[in-house]
Design a protein around this nucleic acid. Structure first.
Lengths: 230, 230
DNA sequence: ATATAAAAGCGTAATTTTAACACTTATTCT
DNA sequence: AGAATAAGTGTTAAAATTACGCTTTTATAT
């Protein structure tokens, strides 16, 4: 065992905060929690926690997400590390922000059991503690960029979805209207969806065909040099 | 003053490591240092240090870069935070990686004074300690993406450069040959360079006109919705 | 039964962007 | 004077993106 030569260095608390995005067929939402400890008790906050000795950051983010929402197997990505000296008034804390994408419809039961968490649409979200608004802002812009170059949108939808739902999702993420025909043509040319022999009847009399993301095919295409791009 | 409620949480050492990119008219290089303390003394490493209580990460990265290279006023960007539990065998350490872009020609005097640092071309770089190779890999792919969407390439060049130098730089970053005429047409259409009444005579008999990046104009254009894109 | 309403589904033409491509010019060196 | 070297410069073809409107299906109301 090597003797540590880092004895004189300052140690810090390493927090994690998760921006959890959901989509409810209409708009993008984020999941917030009412903080039940000081400082800032009672205020709305991102879901967070602290890194433990025996885990890495991805594991910690997964643990925190599971503990506070009951959710498992969720798409997550490290976003940025925030370090303003007085960002947390109680104590010097560095926070690594993660963002996660979940399908509200599929996971809502798990969430509803937990009382202090609540979905807010991006535009109506309350003031957040500390620098959490910076985290959310950065997460939105990362999500926006990512959605154009990786097929992560599907994480926000149920496994089966209509083209209209998919389009609405992209419109919500990119915050702009898209042309129906161009959008469908685009996805058709990507050739990574499976059209099911099944219709969703909830949104129209005619019914709309359901599609699935063909993850296997996507992976194979990527190996052959395919680049997802909206 | 609010009483801290974080008493039971583990604290960690927070390190920073900098991937410093340079360009020598031919290829991309990174600056490495021969480590003069344990663990891994004598091995090649990224330039690094530890976060101090009174500074944020950007400040720490700037300080570390200045201390180890004498360089100031350098383009830097936070890259990613690495946290594998045993990434540093001596002690649990989380490391926030930054990458920096510098113009070797302009700054080389400052660097040469410092003996233990050395430039390596990306392809001939030695094995690095810990997870530093992962950091370098990630930095390269970030640099590649960033160079396509932000005018950061100029940070790697002298203030005055020829179009050929600029093209070689992009070829080095993107690791592919570009067409001379298309490249120049592209930059002309961006309209963010100033053509000087001055030629660089070092590379040809005819001489090549020098250009400057018009930062002010770029900023104005961005305000009007301009998006830099190669 | 018929009419109405509401969303689904579908293709083409115009425009813009990107990619491919080769010769002339200026200058130094011999 | 001519040979050698890198600089400088436009056009055409191909591909990608954008704009755009009518028909189909079927549940519901009359």
């Amino acid at each position: 065992m090597v003797l540590s030569s880092y004895k004189n260095e300052d140690k810090v608390l390493l927090a994690l905060d998760c921006i959890i995005f959901g989509f409810d067929q209409e708009e993008l939402k984020i999941l917030l929690v009412k903080r039940d400890f000081e400082p800032e008790k009672g205020k709305w906050s991102l879901i967070g926690g602290f890194l433990k000795k025996e885990e890495n950051l991805d594991e910690a983010a997964t643990r925190i997400l599971r503990y506070l929402t009951g959710l498992n197997n969720i798409y997550m990505e490290q976003l940025y590390t925030f370090s303003k000296v007085d960002r947390d008034p109680a104590e010097r804390t560095i926070s690594v922000a993660y963002y996660a994408l979940i399908d509200i419809a599929t996971h809502d039961k798990a969430l509803l059991k937990q009382n202090p968490v609540q979905w807010f649409s991006l535009k109506e979200a309350p003031k957040l503690i500390f620098d959490h608004h910076l985290m959310v802002e950065k997460a939105i812009s990362r999500l926006r960029r990512r959605a154009l170059t990786k097929p992560i949108g599907f994480e926000l939808l149920p496994p089966k979805f209509t083209m209209r739902q998919l389009q609405k999702l992209y419109e919500a993420i990119l915050d702009k209207k898209l042309d129906k025909r161009n959008f469908i043509n685009k996805f058709n040319s990507l050739d990574i969806l499976i059209k099911l022999n099944e219709k969703d009847m909830s949104s129209s009399k005619k019914g709309a065909f359901l599609f699935k993301f063909d993850e296997e095919k996507y992976r194979r295409k990527v190996e052959d040099g395919f680049i997802f791009k909206i």
